[in-house]
Simulated assay, not measured.
Amino acid sequence: MSKAPITAKGAEKLREQLHQMKSVERPKIIEAIAEARAHGDLSENAEYHAAKEQQSFLEGRIKELEMHLADAQVIDVTSVNANGKVVFGATVDLLHLENDTEVTYQIVGEMEADIDNGLISISSPIARALIGKNEGDVTSVQAPGGEVEYEILEVRYE
């Protein structure tokens, strides 16, 4: 099984999330279950069933994060210098050639992708179109609304 790439920053964020779940959220749910159990008859105890459902969801999420961290290949983007070439972890400034707008994306692993914060998955169509290209290159991306062309303005490794 191949290791999934993740940036060092992304791995740290997942570790913090895992720590929060284990040290804060898990004890809260355990306390809620104990409190609901003290109310008596569990067959008709909505609070108990809701807390057990929350516990099940949380434990599943904890296992998922642990699995992803165990299978991750952590890449320190700051130590990468591909001389202006777009590689995993690179932050890329792009110019949308049709409407003359600029966008910035960082190419990251699946688990840390967050389009609202400019983090796009390595497997996304735009990342696949950018990988291997250099500053100044023009690339086209097949988007749901048709083909979109971008010019690569700058590539940073931060």
Rank of each mutant, 00 (worst) to 15 (best):
K85W: 02
E98G: 11
S121G: 09
P144Q: 12
R15Y: 10
T91S: 04
Y150I: 06
I75E: 10
L94S: 06
L65Q: 08
V24D: 13
V138W: 04
N99G: 09
A36V: 06
I152S: 01
P5H: 12
G109F: 01
G89N: 01
S79Q: 12
L18W: 09
E31M: 12
I29M: 09
H19Y: 15
I122G: 02
E44C: 05
A143I: 07
D71R: 15
V92P: 07
A82W: 05
G10P: 01
L69M: 13
M111R: 09
A82L: 07
H19I: 12
S124F: 07
L153H: 03
A143C: 09
Q17C: 11
A34D: 14
V103K: 12
I152K: 00
Q73E: 15
T101S: 07
E16W: 10
H39Y: 13
I115L: 06
V148L: 12
G60W: 01
G10K: 02
A36H: 04
E98N: 06
E59I: 08
L18G: 05
D116A: 15
V155H: 03
I120Y: 04
A4G: 08
A127F: 01
I6H: 04
A11E: 00
R128Q: 10
A127L: 00
G145P: 03
E35A: 12
N117D: 07
A34N: 13
E12H: 03
K133R: 08
I62M: 02
L42S: 05
V138N: 11
P27A: 06
Y150R: 10
A113K: 03
Q55R: 14
I120H: 03
S140M: 09
A11V: 10
L97H: 02
R15H: 13
G84K: 00
K13Q: 07
V141H: 11
E47D: 10
E64V: 11
E102S: 14
A72M: 10
A34S: 13
R26F: 08
E149G: 00
T104C: 05
V138M: 08
Q106I: 02
L97S: 04
F57W: 13
A46N: 08
P125R: 05
A46V: 14
N99D: 14
E149T: 06
V103I: 14
R61E: 09
E158H: 04
I107T: 01
V77K: 02
N134K: 11
G40D: 12
K28N: 14
T101P: 07
L119I: 02
M1K: 10
L95K: 12
A143T: 14
N45M: 13
G10C: 01
E66D: 10
G40E: 12
R156S: 09
T139E: 05
A50K: 14
H39R: 14
D114S: 13
Y157G: 02
S121H: 08
L119H: 08
K9R: 15
V77C: 04
A34Y: 09
R156D: 06
L14S: 06
A50M: 11
A51I: 12
Q106L: 00
